[in-house]
């Protein structure tokens, strides 16, 4: 009984801590194996438009303002709303359209796996080897 309780509590602890972690994922065609915080901001602001191999950078966003999304943007120093403002400016100045916003993290995972030059973010615990992880955000 005690052992079960112990296992349970470890499991709960693990699941809580893994839930809080976010993986920045990219399509396997992306040559970069890791990106820094400021590079992430530039990628999502549309200031970096191409990967090292010349492929265009295609960013993806989540539709719902859930914890994963908020944590991701606050990691790069912005709010979701502020990101939208940035994208709106880019759009108005003809520098590019805002990213597609996907319904779920699983959608994000599969779309990034499918799309060449794609970059996105999901909870660390749902990633698989269909994508490559280029950064892990711990809180």
């Amino acid at each position: 009984m005690k052992k079960i309780l112990l296992c349970l509590s470890i499991f709960i602890l693990l699941s809580i801590s893994s839930n809080a972690q976010i993986a920045v994922i990219a399509n396997k065609s992306v040559p970069e194996s890791s990106v820094s915080k400021s590079e992430l901001l530039d990628l999502y602001s549309g200031d970096i438009k191409w990967w090292g191999n010349g492929d265009p950078v295609i960013i993806f966003d989540l539709k719902k303002n859930d914890d994963v999304k908020k944590d991701f943007y606050s990691f790069i120093g912005k709010t979701p709303s502020r990101m939208k403002t940035i994208w709106m400016k880019k759009m108005l100045s003809g520098e590019g359209d805002p990213p597609d916003a996907l319904e779920t993290e699983n959608d994000m995972l599969s779309v990034v796996a499918k799309t060449q030059g794609a970059i996105g973010f999901v909870s660390l615990d749902i990633i698989d080897n269909s994508v490559k992880t280029i950064a892990i955000i711990k809180d």
Binding site: N65, P80, S81, K84, T85, W87, M88, M91, D97, P98
Partner: peptide, 10 residues
């Protein structure tokens, strides 16, 4: 609402 408005603006 500002966020919603921005989405709609796109």
């Amino acid at each position: 609402n500002w966020e919603v408005y921005q989405d709609l603006s796109f």
